[in-house]
């Protein structure tokens, strides 16, 4: 997280509050991909995440005058996105989630770039096994653990930042993250070696 980016965010918030409609539009275009990504990871459903992104930005727009400029806009936006994701998860408990992992693993490609990254043979099987295991394990975490785990392991937020986003003590973040990690670790194949041959090969230049 970057100081210049934070300053630019504050400037855009100020523009919006001064009556310039372009201020919010710029904030939205600047952060929509990031908010969308975090919502996909929390909701684990692309369509839901897209709809949630729209609702989150509507909430952000309505609440911008309550944003404290001494804080970070992104932390504030993450808080709104996280609370919204939790609301949605609770509302849709009975709905079946789309198994995103299957389509992307089956396609064997980086869907962002369209490049094929399909590994061959044993490597492919190992990667697919790990991909499925991690995806399922994260999906099976309780909401509170999953949110903390997602913010730390996918969004790279620190303990302190997560505490600020969720409005909970750092000690709670630490204990939730510990339990989430242990559940994930237990779900991985016992003999999986993250420093094993597939990762070594991955680092070699082609």
């Amino acid at each position: 997280m970057d100081v210049e980016q934070d300053d630019e965010d504050r400037r855009l918030v100020h523009r919006h509050l001064s009556g310039d409609v372009g201020g919010f539009e710029d904030l939205y275009r600047r952060h929509r991909e990031r908010i969308f990504a975090v919502l996909v990871r929390m909701l684990r459903n692309r369509e839901d995440a897209l709809e949630a992104t729209q609702e989150v930005f509507i909430r952000i727009h309505r609440g911008l005058d309550s944003f404290d400029p001494s804080g970070r806009f992104l932390t504030w936006a993450y808080r709104i996105a996280t609370n919204h994701a939790i609301d949605r998860i609770r509302r849709r408990k009975v709905r079946k989630e789309t198994p995103i992992v299957e389509e992307s693993v089956a396609a064997g490609s980086d869907l962002r770039t369209g490049r094929s990254s399909q590994p061959q043979g044993a490597d492919a099987m190992e990667r697919e096994e790990i991909a499925t295991a991690i995806h399922d394990a994260v999906g099976e975490l309780g909401d509170a653990h999953r949110i903390v785990f997602t913010l730390h392991c996918y969004e790279n937020l620190s303990y302190g930042e997560i505490a600020a986003v969720l409005g909970i003590p750092v000690g709670t973040v630490m204990s939730r993250l510990y339990h989430a990690r242990r559940k994930i670790r237990d779900a991985l194949p016992g003999d999986w070696d993250p420093g094993g041959p597939s990762r070594s090969r991955e680092r070699k230049p082609e």
Binding site: A37, V40, R44, R46, I100, V101, S104, V105, L111
Partner: peptide
Amino acid sequence: DPLRTVPAA
């Protein structure tokens, strides 16, 4: 995890 890189909207 495939969700490590979320396909862009």
